[in-house]
Amino acid sequence: MFAILVAGIALWVAAHFFKRLAPDARANMGDKGKGIAALAIIVSLVLIITGYRGAEIVTVWNPPGFMVHINNLLMLVAVFIYGMSATTGTLRGKLRHPQLLAVKIWAVAHLLANGDLASIILFGSMLLWAGGSVALINRAEEWNRPEPGDPSKNKLLVIITIVMFAVITAIHTWLGVWPFPG
């Protein structure tokens, strides 16, 4: 199952980096390239989830119990920052790459709370991928900071954050991982 996990991660990285590393090849694909990239990302997610869930548990380190609480707090921050990219409140433009920063926070949070090999491979590689993505984007594009938006949209961001955190918690629970140990 580790091979399936690694194959999924490799496909994820390739699908996301293709546009940046081979822009001419991607441009030659035209609109159908978007569909191919989307399909590759979906397949990569299936492989990652299948490989991760089926991987043998190989303990590398035993994180202290309080790391789960730090993970949950960092996840709330990650969801909030991820949402900043989709809202038009006063926080818009405060961060250049809110989605990728959120992935980095998500990865670090899960590395702190999980000491098994599959988690280290998955979350460590996603941390490296997000960092590499930021570097590639920054090298290729100049950033024009957007103007801050309507302050009332900040309330929407908070509501979306709470709802998305609840959804993520529900998904973890459905998968058999209760994120709030006693």
Rank of each mutant, 00 (worst) to 15 (best):
V108D: 01
A15M: 09
L74G: 10
K94L: 15
I9H: 07
R145D: 00
I162L: 14
M126S: 04
G124D: 01
L111H: 07
G149M: 12
I4Q: 06
S125W: 05
A27L: 08
N28P: 01
A40Y: 07
A10Y: 05
E141P: 10
W178E: 10
L156V: 08
F80D: 00
F66K: 01
H97P: 12
L111W: 02
I105M: 08
I162R: 00
L100Q: 05
H97A: 14
R139Q: 14
Y82N: 08
I159E: 06
I48N: 01
D150R: 12
L100T: 05
E141N: 11
V13F: 13
L11D: 06
P181Y: 01
E141A: 11
W174V: 09
S119P: 13
H172R: 02
V13E: 01
A135M: 10
M75E: 01
I48C: 08
K155Y: 14
V13I: 15
K94H: 14
R92I: 08
A55H: 05
S44K: 07
Y82L: 15
I48R: 11
H172W: 08
T88S: 13
S125Q: 01
P179M: 14
G33F: 15
L117A: 12
I41K: 09
K32I: 14
K153C: 05
W61F: 15
P98Q: 11
R20G: 08
N28Q: 13
L21C: 10
M29A: 10
M1R: 04
L175M: 15
S125K: 04
V163M: 02
L45M: 15
L11T: 06
F2Y: 15
G115K: 03
G124H: 10
M67P: 02
G131F: 04
K104W: 10
G83V: 03
M84G: 07
